[in-house]
Design a protein around this nucleic acid. Structure first.
Ligand code: FES
Ligand code: FES
Lengths: 136, 136
DNA sequence: TCAATTAGTACCGTTTTAGTACTGATTAAA
DNA sequence: TTTAATCAGTACTAAAACGGTACTAATTGA
């Protein structure tokens, strides 16, 4: 249905909360309370975001999470990559690595690539800062 | 994963085949043979496309399907609408009609709307003609 | 009447997704 | 050194979405 997963939706809400309290080290539990997203899910998402270096974690007692970049430098394409994997509109997009059954006698082979790229670009041009209402 | 369904993928392949044989009345079976898409699936997709007035059907013996518009006037957003429903990136996009659990204290409410619109526009600007390789 | 063909609906099996649970590693503080 | 808090990683389960199929009804030309 050309939709984002709930994970991505949640991830943006969580990131937005972190941005609004920038600099603070927040635990998964605290973020769950603030955002009303179930805590185990928050934890799961934060781990994914750490892997993409969108947030930094501090382990141990008094640990927590904080943004590892400025909200201006975090874009939606990157967040989606973290939670849902790369943007690949169809199985036959080059970057997908997958093989399409129809590729032998397909009359639209490769034609999705530029469309896919356009989507990617559009998402890269939306920053977390914009998602929390800022202009820049 | 921000991907299109296989249905949409197939639909475009089928439409492209129809475009390349423009004017001819083609049965679901014939299109299945040409495209290698399983026939029942072809039938299902054609029915969806008829509902959106992208193809016209003729019933009865010697019946079949044909494009109801020029390939220039068929765009990907419309095809996606036929096979997957409207483009709604997240549950909280205005046009989705759905209600988001987090909407009460959500700090990114409504912020997906322009992004969603950008996607929609990008898809509207890709015609079937372009998908079959034509410039215009 | 008969055969071809689309229309509509309903169903099932598989895959994907969301959510949960559990164990292990790290760190600060008592 | 012990304890408690916290993140890391993995594995599992339940629910939803999706792809595919089957079946019946309606339409039309011969
Ligand atoms: S639909 Fe996959 S290669 Fe064309
Ligand atoms: S995430 Fe749904 S309203 Fe904000």
């Amino acid at each position: 249905m050309l939709k984002l997963s709930k994970m991505t939706d949640y991830a943006v809400v969580i990131l937005a909360e972190m941005a609004s309290l920038d600099g603070q080290l927040l635990t998964a539990g605290a973020l769950a309370q603030h955002t009303k997203v179930p805590e185990p899910t928050v934890s799961k998402i934060l781990k994914l975001l750490v892997k993409q270096n969108l947030v930094a974690s501090t382990r141990g007692s008094n640990g927590g999470y904080t943004l590892s970049k400025s909200p201006n430098d975090i874009n939606m394409a990157h967040v989606i990559m973290a939670t849902d994997g790369p943007v690949t509109l169809t199985a036959c997009v080059e970057s997908s690595g997958q093989h399409c059954d129809l590729s032998d006698n397909c009359n639209v082979k490769g034609k999705w690539n530029p469309v896919n790229q356009a989507m990617q670009n559009a998402l890269e041009n939306v920053s977390l800062q914009q998602m929390i209402g800022g202009r820049a």
